[in-house]
Amino acid sequence: MASGIKVTDEVVTAYAEVKEKHKFKYVVFKVSDNEKEIVVDRKVEESSWEDFQASFPSDEPRWSVYDFDYKNKEGQDRNKLILVKWCPDNVKIKAKMMHSSSSDALGKKCKGVPIQANDRDELNYNEVRDKILSTSQ
């Protein structure tokens, strides 16, 4: 928590709703307007990967926990939580620094395969799947 920004209970609850209850396909988090805590930006029940990719703002950082469906090396259906750290290159430097320094605090409360993305190309389905496959057994 190097930035001093706290992860709210609402964030932890939303994470559990994706991980344990599968109530949402993904949840998006952001720094609150007063810059004191990480809060839930939105919860999405159903979404394609393409819609998820397109949902990130082009000029603001976000985090998201996504219930990623894929086939393992044996062709079996699997799913894994990923934690996307979205920070486009054109984000203002203060917001970039706040996002970066707050990511560890969020990552401790919301576990998932970390995916860093600065543009939509870095959220390529096959590349994300390959990263998951390289970290899974």
Rank of each mutant, 00 (worst) to 15 (best):
K73M: 10
L123I: 06
R78D: 05
K94R: 15
Y70G: 01
Y70C: 03
H99R: 07
E122N: 11
K85G: 03
K80E: 13
A117H: 04
S101I: 02
Q116N: 11
N118K: 12
I115P: 00
K94E: 09
I115D: 05
N118C: 10
S103N: 14
A105L: 12
H99N: 10
M97P: 08
K108Y: 06
D121G: 13
V91G: 05
K131W: 06
L123W: 08
L106G: 02
K96A: 08
Y125T: 03
D121M: 12
R129P: 00
K92D: 10
K71V: 07
K80A: 12
L106H: 05
N72S: 07
E122I: 11
D89P: 04
P114D: 08
K73Q: 09
W86G: 01
W86V: 05
Q116A: 06
P114Y: 09
W86D: 01
R129K: 15
D69R: 11
S102W: 11
P114H: 07
Q76I: 08
K73L: 11
M98I: 10
D69G: 07
V113I: 14
V128T: 04
V128Y: 01
I115V: 15
G75C: 09
G112M: 05
L106Q: 03
C87I: 01
G107T: 02
P114N: 11
S101R: 11
K111P: 01
C110D: 00
R129F: 09
Y70M: 05
L123Q: 05
K73F: 11
K94M: 10
G112Q: 02
E74Y: 09
D77L: 14
R78F: 04
W86C: 07
N90L: 06
N79R: 13
G107V: 02
E122A: 09
H99Y: 14
E127H: 13
K73N: 13
C110F: 00
V91R: 04
D119E: 14
N124I: 11
N118P: 00
Y70K: 03
N72R: 04
M97I: 15
V91T: 08
I93A: 14
D119A: 09
S103K: 04
I82A: 03
D89H: 11
K108C: 03
N126R: 13
H99W: 14
D130K: 15
P114C: 12
